[in-house]
Design a protein around this nucleic acid. Structure first.
Lengths: 333, 333
DNA sequence: GCGGGGCGTGAAAGCGGTTTCTCGATTATG
DNA sequence: CATAATCGAGAAACCGCTTTCACGCCCCGC
C-alpha cells in the first residue's frame, strides 16, 4: 500500500487518521490548535506509518530548502576544508546543511557552477579567489543571498569576509627582515588570484619601507606540487629566505629543498601562509601567518543566517593574520 | 512580471513562446520532436527570460535530486576530508552533488541525521565508525541506496568499502618488531569504534605470532588532542614504541613527547595510521599504514552510481593498507 | 428563538516542473 | 476520394506538501 518510493505520504497518514492532509500538515508543523485527541490520532498514524514529510515537496511549497551551497576552488586544500568544517557545523545548529561544489580550480566554470549550486539551495557561500571581479559582482547580485569569502570589494553587494593578505605578508617580510634577511624570494600563487595580488601589493609596500631588501618573484600555484616544482628556481635566486604563497606551497618547497640537500632554516628560511593545522607539526615547524579559518566559517554562517532571515547582516570583516614565528625561519648564515 | 523569487517559471517561458509548458519542458530536456521552429522559439524565450528550471520542482516531479549525502563523524579529520574531496569530484562528473553532514562524533544522533540526510538526497554514503551494528544494518536497508565505508559486515546489505585495519596494524607491529622493539603500547581510538576493535584483534593476532612482545593498551580517541593527552600515560608504560590509533593521534602524541623532552624515534618510536597528506612532512616523518582515501571516494561513487541506476554494484572492497616506513620509527636504543 | 461570532476542520489552490493521454491536423494508403 | 496511420502539441493529472479560504457547527446574547 506504500507508494512506489516506499515512503508514506501525508495523504496516507491523513487517511489512516481519518483527517485531511491539511490537518496532518498542521500537526506535523506544530500549527495545530484544535482537539488534542485529533492531534494524537494524527501523531499515532504518522508513527504507525513511519511517516516523515518529503523534504523536496516541503521545500517546494515553502520556497526554502534549508541548505546552502559552498563553492570552493579545491576541496583538497586544508584551508577550505577548515572553513567548510566549521561552516557546516555552525549552519547545522540552525538546521541548515551544506552542499559542496568543487570547481576544480577551473575559474571559467565557476559562474555556471555557482548558478547551479545556488538554484539548489537557499543561498551561496562563494570562495572564488580567481574569478574576474566583474563576474563576481554580477554573481553576488544575481545569486543573492550570497556571502563572499576573500574577495573584498566595494562593488560587491554581498557581505564579505576577508583576510588581509596584504598586511599579513608584510608581517612575514618584516619578520624575515628583522632576522637579518635582505634577499627574499616570493613564490607566487596562481595567476589571477586576487589574494596573490594582495600579497604582491603588500610586498611592494614593504619594499618601499625597507629599501635595503631585494625581493624576487617566481610564478607558482596554490598546491604543494607547485612548491616542489619551484624548488630549483627558488635556489637559483640565491635568496636567503622564501615567502611561499601559502602553507601548502611552503610544505612542497621545503620537501624539494630537503631533496636538494638545502637545510631549512640554516641555508634558507621558508614561510607559509594560512597556518593549516599541520603547519606547526611539519619539519621544521612552519613560520606562517595564521588565518582563523574556523572563525571564517562561523562568521560566514552568521552573515548568511541574517540574509536568509531577511535581516541586515553584520558588517564586513577583514581578518588580520597573526604572525606565527616558528623554526622554519631563522637568521641567515 | 517575474515571480516573487525573481526567477522565471516554465509558464512564463511558455507564454512568451506561445506554446504550452509541456512543450517548453520537452525542449529543455531534449525530448522535443516537433517543428524545429517551435523549439527555436522556446529556446529564444528561455534565453530572453534567463530561464532555468527550478531544481526543486524538477526533482519532485522526477523523483530524484541528483544529490547524495555524506555522513561523517568529524569533517575536521583529514582522512574524511580526503574521501569527501574525491567523492565530490567523482560524483560531479555524473552531475551529482554532495551534501555533507557532520555528526560531530555524536553516535547517538547518527541514525536520525542519516535518515534526515537521506530524505534530502537520492542516496547516502555512510561513514559511521561507532554506530552499533544493529542500527547500521537497520539503516543500510531503511535508507537504501546506501554505501557504507569502513563497516564490513555480512549483515549489511549495502555495498561496503573497507580498510583492513586488522592486517594494517599487524604490518606496523611487525615493522616495529623487526626493528627490535619488544615492548609496544597501543594508543586506542574511541571506545566503540569498530576500526579500533579491528586494530585490537590485529594486535592480538600479532601477539600470538610473536610471543616475545608485550603490548600495553591505553584508552584514547581519534583526534590529535587525544594523542597529546595520552603522552604521560604512554611514557609511563616504558614501551619503546607506540602505535597510535591514527595519524592525528600520532601527531598529537609526538607533540606531547617533544614537550616532555622525549625524542622520537630515539627514545620512542611512534607510528600512525591513514597516511594523511601531511604524515610525510611532519617531524619526524611519520611511519604509518597508508590508506587510499581518494580511491575510497572514487570507489564509493562507483558503487553509488550503480545503485542509483538500479544496476548491480561492484563487489565489496577491502583495501590493504600499505606500510609506509618513515623516520618516526627506528630501532630501540 | 434566532442571528452573529468563534472555532475546528476540510477543500482546493498553489509551489514549478514532467508526462501521459488525447485530439486535431497532416500525410500515407487502398 | 475516403480512411487509416502518423505526427505535433496541448490539457490535465501528478509529484507531496503548505496554506488560504470557506464552511459547518456550536455557543452566546438579546
Amino acid at each position: 500500500m506504500a507508494s512506489r518510493s516506499g515512503a508514506a505520504t501525508i495523504a496516507e497518514v491523513a487517511a489512516r487518521a481519518g483527517v485531511s492532509p491539511a490537518t496532518v500538515s498542521r500537526v506535523m508543523n506544530g500549527r495545530f490548535v484544535g482537539e488534542p485527541s485529533v492531534a494524537e490520532r494524527v501523531r499515532q498514524a504518522a508513527a504507525d506509518l513511519d511517516y516523515s514529510p518529503n523534504h523536496l515537496a516541503r521545500s517546494l511549497a515553502l520556497g526554502e530548502t534549508k541548505a546552502i551551497a559552498f563553492l570552493v576552488p579545491d576541496l583538497a586544500n586544508p584551508a577550505f576544508q577548515a572553513v567548510l568544517s566549521s561552516l557546516s557545523k555552525t549552519a547545522a545548529k540552525d538546521g541548515y546543511r551544506v552542499l559542496v561544489v568543487d570547481s576544480g580550480e577551473s575559474t571559467s566554470d565557476e559562474p555556471l557552477l555557482a548558478a547551479e549550486a545556488r538554484r539548489r539551495c537557499d543561498a551561496l557561500v562563494l570562495c572564488a579567489p580567481r574569478m574576474p571581479e566583474d563576474e563576481l559582482v554580477e554573481a553576488s547580485v544575481a545569486l543573492s543571498p550570497v556571502v563572499v569569502i576573500n574577495r573584498r570589494s566595494s562593488r560587491v553587494s554581498a557581505p564579505t569576509l576577508s583576510v588581509d593578505y596584504q598586511s599579513g605578508i608584510q608581517g612575514l617580510a618584516r619578520h624575515l627582515h628583522g632576522l637579518g634577511h635582505r634577499h627574499l624570494v616570493f613564490l607566487e600563487g596562481p595567476e589571477g588570484s586576487v589574494s596573490n595580488q594582495a600579497r604582491l601589493r603588500g610586498l611592494e609596500e614593504f619594499e618601499r619601507s625597507a629599501p635595503d631588501v631585494r625581493i624576487d618573484r617566481i610564478r607558482g600555484g596554490a598546491g604543494s606540487e607547485d612548491g616542489l616544482l619551484a624548488t630549483e628556481r627558488v635556489i637559483a635566486t640565491g635568496a636567503t629566505a622564501a615567502l611561499a604563497f601559502n602553507d601548502l606551497v611552503a610544505v612542497g618547497l621545503i620537501g624539494g629543498l630537503v631533496e636538494h640537500g638545502v637545510v631549512v632554516p640554516d641555508d634558507i628560511s621558508v614561510t607559509g601562509f594560512d597556518d593549516i593545522p599541520f603547519a606547526r607539526y611539519i619539519s621544521p615547524p612552519l613560520t606562517t601567518a595564521s588565518v582563523p579559518h574556523e572563525e571564517l566559517g562561523v562568521q560566514a554562517w552568521q552573515r548568511m543566517r541574517s540574509l536568509v532571515r531577511h535581516e541586515t547582516p553584520d558588517h564586513d570583516l577583514l581578518f588580520q593574520p597573526r604572525l606565527e614565528p616558528r623554526r622554519s625561519s631563522a637568521p641567515p648564515r
